[in-house]
């Protein structure tokens, strides 16, 4: 998995690519928690390059969102591929995370 931090009109975007699995989730958690500790909000996660996410990846985002809610922060997902969307829906998390089609949509809301 590759993590790129992009600044999009003053909004922080984590652009992810590759597989988010048991091996790469600890790196994702480190990066996510870095922004959480700085109380960054909103934080966007761009999934367009993600080919696979397992339970550890989903659990990492659940932990991130829970921590952000403590300071009223917003965690927004962008460009989720269909297969990953199916897993989020099954886990009933599609109604918990804010999900947008594009970075512009996510910034506007």
């Amino acid at each position: 998995m590759k993590i790129e931090v992009v600044d999009c009109k003053g909004v922080k975007v984590l652009a992810l690519s590759g597989d988010i699995d048991m091996y790469s989730s600890p790196d994702l958690r480190k990066e996510l928690m870095h922004f959480v500790h700085k109380k960054v909000s909103p934080l966007l996660v761009d999934f367009r390059g993600v080919s696979y996410i397992d339970s550890s990846g989903i659990a990492t985002f659940v932990e991130g969102l829970k921590s952000m809610m403590g300071y009223g922060g917003k965690l927004k997902f962008v460009g989720i591929p269909e297969k990953i969307m199916e897993i989020l829906c099954f886990a009933k998390l599609d109604r918990v995370f804010e999900i947008y089609g594009s970075i512009d949509d996510a910034c506007r809301n």
């Binding site: 048991m22 600890p26 958690r29 339970s55 550890s56 659990a59 932990e63």
Partner: peptide
């Protein structure tokens, strides 16, 4: 198995357990 075979942090493991 998560504690034995991965380097995941305990909060992540706890969430995975609850999901499973």
């Amino acid at each position: 198995p998560l504690r034995e075979h991965t380097k995941l942090e305990e909060p992540t493991i706890q969430i995975i357990c609850r999901m499973k």
